[in-house]
Design a protein around this nucleic acid. Structure first.
Ligand SMILES: Nc1ccn([C@H]2C[C@H](O)[C@@H](COP(=O)(O)OP(=O)(O)OP(=O)(O)O)O2)c(=O)n1
Ligand SMILES: [Mg+2]
Ligand SMILES: [Mg+2]
Ligand SMILES: [Mg+2]
Length: 1175
DNA sequence: ATCCTCCCCTAC
DNA sequence: TAAGGTAGGGGAGGAT
């Protein structure tokens, strides 16, 4: 199998150096995460190597790239001062003559001194004999030096992508975030940078320093033949020390070297190949952090957790546990990624770890000082456990006060302590007796929770349909969610999702402001009211600009309480969790573990530590007296519209932010009306809001929007606060950094990890902007700099037009089959189309985003029907022209979905996003007139009914229901023999991810994953004379094959692609009937050319095509294109063209256009060029 | 430099 | 049970 060697062309991209390019494909072109791609590639290399005993690494870049998987580049020191950056690497050689290290008599290797940096020799890479077959490839890389690969003699210049890439990774491991780009810039300035890499070619152990001469490669010189290696792999019992696991992920647990001294270190070599390290005392690798002890986080063994590398954590938000310190030994229930439970523990770099709290497990109940997250960090650091919830083995509950409710919750054997117990113990350096900090109470009767207390003025007979969803059919029977693919599912979901509502309203309010501006006659009725209530035109007008930020206080709760005055003063939340009324259901359901989110909580509830977005269960623990009221979306919308109309009666210098929030620029009003005190104006406005909506609003005033917004925080609840320019500095200095808009949890943590604990803006101000930019990038750095100084030059007018339209559903997605997925995508496409129609735009680019269950996540998420722990992948495609037709959107979406080829049953979230929007001059067919929902003056008596007018349904076409031309694999999904032939570790991997493979799955027999096409595609695309042994590919794990397939599928986007017809010539195999096709495009079950032709002629004979027929044809042609059956596609298209040319029917003409357009889109997507079918 | 894709982050 | 949507800004890294 020489496909990887030499100059053989890549069957996919026609380039040479297959491995390199496949790797590149893996890295860039397919939707797996980078880490996963690397792993797969790595695995493949090992596999192929073992089978062929041929090196596949042909360039130094490959070596370096592979090494990056090990994280074995090592940065010894990093210093930065101002813009000067200096990197010093451990240097393996002060003496360029590396051979001397081989000789046993060579002087003891000294750790290289930093001073040696910059004195590099010409020798960049050398190979030296290490006795027998043991060899060291020493690759030195230095600035402005050429690096020569010993293997292929290819030379590279310094600061190659590969090098900066790895340096970047290593800096990240050390908590230093510095981009590749900046590293490269640093290289350009500092020629002392060097990197040394020493790697044993036999066992692949990598050294960062000169290897200890005691390194004894466990791989004996006897070069095994491919056969014997194979034999080894087929029978694990015969494995010898020379055939260590090829996959480090399993090597840590199961590979054991027959050599007694080997066991402890065998697990730490990621690329361990066939060897383990003996006596490699000088080895320094990032694995050494693990201390040779297998450690686990919730994702499995620590060393394979892709979230582990701090700072390198693309999805870091999702690993909620301190790696290696997971309180539950690798399993945990905390999948919630929201702001309150995500609680990713920061790296423990400050101070010593200890076992102070060994055996102690705390649960923090309510507000504490220090905060729960700090307590958690402390517990992690000092050997204790931190429980998100009260668990049976919780030993201490930490509280700061002791309301009865907390005593009520006390379980036997549990101790209530103050946080001081923990802090004092740490300060004392020993575990102080908890008895001094205990807060005991007698267990008393359980406090009952009033749930969903009805509005005081309403009888229970009020339509229950008005509870959360105003408009949902009752016929959809209550208990469970509709099937994901059911059109009812989306409808119902959108009727109940608060986030959908507030998101939609946010957009609508922006439009409302635009409409009000457009409709304005220049008069402002509100200013008359102003004139009545305050002195106008008396004083001198304010000179400086005045911006006001207005935000309703706990908006949803306020609206809800307007009809429930008896609940005022009590802690109240709005949530979807349906508790039955306490009065009707005596057995109070226990909601203390509810995963429902709180939408809004009032200020009484906030006193107990509640926040918007918190989980109800957690909230109830912190505040057992809580009252929950249901959503009243109509009422929120009404209040919101009133709010905007009120403001618009004073000024149209409005920036809509959300349904309960906006900025206004009062400068003009104050100047025009000669008002000296803007606070008086604001007071009048707020009073009017309270009068008309029954809800309070707060306002912040400042010289810009940023300061105004922060002033609002101070003003809340039901207040106002003005920060004039002269006070800005002092005001800003005391603002908490976390309160700055735009600084969320992650950025705050990153800030802290880089610059230590920062509390106030004054602390942030002290950090030079250059450092911020170096850490966060130019824009974010500047933003941070400006934020903490209260600098904000943006204006009220929001001139930017819409950039994207998307529909995301990440809840309730449970798909059983490909057909269901297609149905759902069609439904979703309709929603996207509606949104595009609303704004009269069409999109030229589509992005599909999928969330899929993480391999080790349970199938049932903790939150009912939630997405659980997921990986996210996305894929986008640029279309030949903007589209806004639901069928085209659906077809593109289906295609993208197929390209992402997820395990359908594991899909937990789907999003379609249209970008590159262009406004459509001409409304598309079936388009409705734009309806202005909002330019209706709300009056107290007549609620703006028009505002909630249901969206006009599109003329219902029969749902383009077509049998997906199912791609079925004739072959058995996964051949057990192939499985048996795989190396043990691969088998284990397979066993660990059963869903990745088509193992017999009785429960889901109908799932035909797109991967089943992999082999077919390969067999179609591989040139006949290829030396590529298909059997080898067949032996790859299926997931690997699918990677290869994807790599093949993904058209090279950037390089010039051969014309499709040339491709056809280049791969004439596609149409050959002799070639056994594993899968075949089918039209109505027919796949034979003549049969399809006959069918096509029949179809074309009809007077008019049905939508169904058009959909079938589109899908069939799409399949032909995807499968490379271009000849057939061309023939059929020409037949169709010929026949339809003499046809009168416009319907057929349109259909033909649709079909051709779909085909061209598919062609562009898959081949990068249009299909010239007429020739 | 600047573009593109695939993310990540934040806010309501 | 539960309804975890969306838009915009921006960074990383690759291609050109
Ligand atoms: N995670 C969140 C945040 C907000 N909202 C909804 C409910 C809020 O009432 C409304 C407005 O959000 P705000 O941030 O303005 O919060 P509140 O108005 O509830 O409180 P505040 O007084 O702090 O403005 O948006 C939500 O459903 N979920
Ligand atoms: Mg609010
Ligand atoms: Mg809720
Ligand atoms: Mg708000």
């Amino acid at each position: 199998m020489n496909i990887l060697a030499g100059q053989e062309r890549c069957p996919f991209c026609r380039k040479t150096e297959f491995a390199k390019h496949l790797h590149a494909h893996c890295l860039r072109k397919h939707p797996l995460s980078y880490e996963a791609a690397c792993r797969y590639f790595d695995k493949m290399l090992v596999l192929l190597k073992e089978q062929e005993a041929t090196t596949v690494v042909t360039t130094i870049e490959d070596v370096a790239e592979i090494e990056s998987l090990n994280g074995d580049w090592h940065v010894d020191e990093w210093t930065a001062s101002g813009d000067q950056l200096r990197l010093e690497m451990i240097d393996s050689d002060e003496d360029p003559d590396l051979d001397k290290y081989d000789s046993p008599q060579s002087p003891d290797p000294e750790p290289p001194s930093a001073a040696s940096a910059g004195s590099q020799s010409e020798t960049d890479a050398s190979e030296h004999s290490y006795g027998d077959n043991r060899q060291q490839h020493v690759v030195k890389i230095g600035l402005r030096q050429h690096v020569k690969c010993q293997l292929c003699s290819e030379t590279f210049t310094m600061a190659s992508h590969a090098v900066t890439h790895h340096l970047r990774d290593h800096l990240r491991e050390r908590g230093i975030g510095i981009s590749r780009r900046r590293l490269q810039a640093a290289y350009a300035r500092d020629n002392r940078v060097q990197v040394a890499l020493l790697r044993c070619t036999l066992c692949k152990t990598t050294f960062l320093e000169r290897p200890d001469r005691r390194h004894e490669c466990p791989t004996r010189p006897t070069k095994k033949s491919a056969q014997s290696v194979s034999a080894d792999r087929r029978n694990s019992s015969t494995r010898s020390s020379a055939s260590h696991s090829t996959d480090s992920r399993s090597s840590s647990s199961s590979s054991s070297c027959s050599c007694s001294s080997c066991s402890s270190t065998s697990s730490s070599s990621k690329n361990g190949g066939r060897g383990s390290r003996h006596g490699a005392a000088t080895v320094k690798s990032y694995d050494s952090r693990a201390g040779n002890r297998a450690r686990w986080c919730i994702h499995g063994p620590l060393k394979f957790c892709k979230f582990w590398r701090l700072g390198n954590c693309r999805n870091g938000a999702k690993c909620g546990y301190a790696h290696s310190l997971c309180p539950k030994d690798g399993r945990c229930e905390d999948e919630h990624y929201g702001q309150f439970t995500k609680d990713r523990t920061k790296e423990q770099t400050d101070g010593e770890l200890s076992d102070l709290f060994a055996g102690v497990a705390i649960f923090v109940n309510g507000y504490t000082e220090p905060s729960a997250s700090e307590l958690r960090r402390l517990m992690m650091k000092h050997g204790g456990a931190y429980h998100m919830y009260e668990l049976p083995n919780t030993t201490h509950v930490v509280v700061s006060n002791l309301p009865k409710s907390k005593i009520d919750k006390l379980k036997p054997g549990e101790k209530l302590v103050t946080a001081a117990w923990i802090t004092d113990s740490i300060a004392a350096g020993r575990l102080l007796p908890d008895v001094d900090y205990l807060l005991y109470g007698e267990k008393q009767g359980c406090a009952a929770l009033n749930k969903f207390v009805r509005p005081a003025d309403q009888t229970p007979s009020r339509s229950p349909a008005m509870l959360p969803p105003p408009a949902v059919d009752e016929q959809s029977n209550s208990r469970s969610l509709p099937k994901t693919s059911d059109p009812q599912f989306l409808k119902e979901y959108y009727a109940r999702s608060r986030l959908h509502f507030i998101s939609t309203w946010g957009q609508k309010m922006k439009r409302l402001v635009d409409e009000l501006r457009a409709a304005s006659d220049g008069t402002f009725p509100g200013r008359q009211l102003l004139a009545e209530r305050i002195d106008v035109g008396d004083g001198s007008a304010v000179l400086e600009p005045v911006f006001v930020h207005i935000d309703m206080d706990c908006f949803f709760v306020s609206v809800g309480l307007a009809s429930r005055p008896h609940l005022r003063g009590k802690p109240v939340v709005v949530t979807s969790a349906k508790g039955v009324g306490a009065e009707t259901m005596p057995g109070q359901q226990d909601k203390t573990s509810s995963w429902a989110e709180i939408s809004s909580c009032n200020y009484e509830a906030r006193a107990a530590g509640l926040k918007n977005g918190m989980l109800l269960g957690k909230a109830l623990k912190a505040c057992p007296d809580l009252t929950a009221i249901p959503y009243e979306f109509e009422a929120y919308q009404e209040a919101s519209i009133k709010l905007y109309h009120i403001l618009a009666s004073y000024t149209l210098n409005i920036r809509a932010v959300s349904c309960d929030e906006m900025y206004i620029d009062l400068t003009e009003l104050c100047r025009d009306s000669s008002i000296s005190d803007p606070l008086k104006v604001v007071a009048v406005i707020r009073q009017q809001i309270a009068d008309e909506t029954g809800c309070s609003a707060s306002a912040g005033l400042g010289p810009n929007m940023l300061v105004a917004r922060l002033a609002t925080r101070r003003a809340k609840p039901n207040g106002q606060f003005y920060v004039p320019q002269k006070d800005v500095h002092s005001f800003m200095a005391e603002q908490r950094i976390a309160d700055l808009p735009g600084i969320g949890r992650n950025i705050r943590e990153k800030l802290e990890s880089h610059f230590g604990s920062l509390e106030k803006c004054a602390d942030l101000e002290a950090i030079p902007v250059g450092r911020l930019k170096a850490t966060f990038g130019p824009k974010h750095g500047q933003q941070l700099n400006d934020l903490c100084r209260g600098i904000d030059n943006s204006t009220i007018k929001d001139t930017t037009e819409r950039k994207s339209v998307s529909c995301d559903i990440n809840y309730g997605i449970r798909l059983q089959s490909d057909a269901e997925a297609v149905e759902f995508l069609k439904n979703l496409a309709v929603e996207v189309t509606k949104k595009l129609d609303e704004i009269n735009m069409a999109g030229r680019m589509m992005t599909m985003k999928l969330m899929t269950r993480q391999a080790d996540a349970p199938e049932k998420a903790q939150k009912y029907m939630g997405h659980g722990l997921c990986d996210t992948v996305s894929r986008s495609t640029t279309l030949s022209r903007p589209i806004r037709d639901d069928r085209q959107i659906a077809s593109t979406a289906i295609s993208l979905f197929r390209q992402l080829s997820p395990v359908v049953v594991d899909v937990r979230g789907v999003a379609i996003m249209m970008t590159k929007l262009e406004s459509t001059s001409k409304p598309s067919p079936g388009d409705r007139r734009q309806i202005s929902h909002f330019c209706v003056k709300p009056t107290g008596a007549a609620p703006p009914v028009a505002l909630v007018a249901p969206i006009v349904q599109r003329a219902q076409r029969p749902a383009a229901r077509h049998e997906e031309v199912a791609v079925r694999s004739a072959a058995s999904p996964f051949d057990p023999e192939v499985l048996a032939a795989l190396p043990d570790d691969i088998k284990r991997e397979i066993a660990g991810h059963p869903s990745q493979f088509q193992m017999p799955r009785v429960e889901r027999p109908h799932v035909h994953r797109a991967e089943s096409r992999a082999l077919a595609d390969l067999s179609l695309l591989l040139p006949d004379g290829s030396k590529c042994d298909k059997n080898v590919l067949a032996e790859l794990p299926e997931e690997l094959r699918s990677e290869v397939r994807r790599a093949c599928r993904v058209r090279p986007r950037t390089e010039t692609t051969p014309k499709l017809n040339e491709l056809l010539t280049a791969f004439p195999i596609a149409g050959l009937p002799s070639r056994p096709l594993v899968t075949t495009p089918q039209l109505r079950g027919e796949c034979d050319y003549e049969a399809v032709k006959k069918l096509l002629l029949e179809i074309l004979a009809h007077e008019q095509p049905s939508d169904q027929v058009v959909a079938d044809l589109i899908e069939y042609f799409r399949q032909l294109i995807v499968f490379g059956n271009l000849k057939s596609a061309g023939c059929f298209l020409r037949i169709m063209d010929r026949i339809l040319a003499e046809r009168e029917s416009d319907v057929w003409k349109t259909a033909q256009q649709l079909i051709i357009e779909a085909i061209q889109n598919a062609a562009v997507q898959h081949y990068g060029c249009r299909f010239e079918w007429r020739s």
